[in-house]
Design a protein around this nucleic acid. Sequence first.
DNA 1: GCCAACGTTGGC
DNA 2: GCCAACGTTGGC
Length: 157
Amino acid sequence: MNYWLMKSEPSAFSIDDLKTMTEQTEHWDGVRNYQARNMMRDQMKIGDRAFFYHSNCPVPGIVGLMEVVREGYPDHTAFDPNSKYFDEKSNPDKPRWFMVDVKYIRHTKRVIPLDELKALAALENLPLVRKGNRLSLMPVSETEWHYILSIEDRPVR
DNA sequence: GCCAACGTTGGC
DNA sequence: GCCAACGTTGGC
């Protein structure tokens, strides 16, 4: 099983939004970065787990857990001229962008804020806390995954 | 293939 | 709202 971290701006789509979707499942559309695209197209597998991360908000951080329930398939929002994610260079015959479907598992017991994650030596290799990294989707090692879950109950500072 | 200009991300 | 960092575009 692989582990991931997926960012979303809560003003656009939040963990609470995911929880209220039909079957608590939604497609993760709008990713327009090739590195992230490749991960969704090639590497994310059914059953993989992912952290839901809120970005660009008062307290950026990890807010919940999700499960991958559908593997990479074309992001149809790229085909829709009325979508803000429209990309004229993508079409159904030769899709440029891909997405996966994710299902809500649960909220974390508290928001695990970015500034706390940054302070933890055990997470120094997590792309999220590395200077200049802007990936909206990134792999999390099994060790990092379990470590983060272990600090859910109490801040480690 | 280089690289300047531009657009985007996202913390602060 | 600012701006550092990075990715993409396109002229050459």
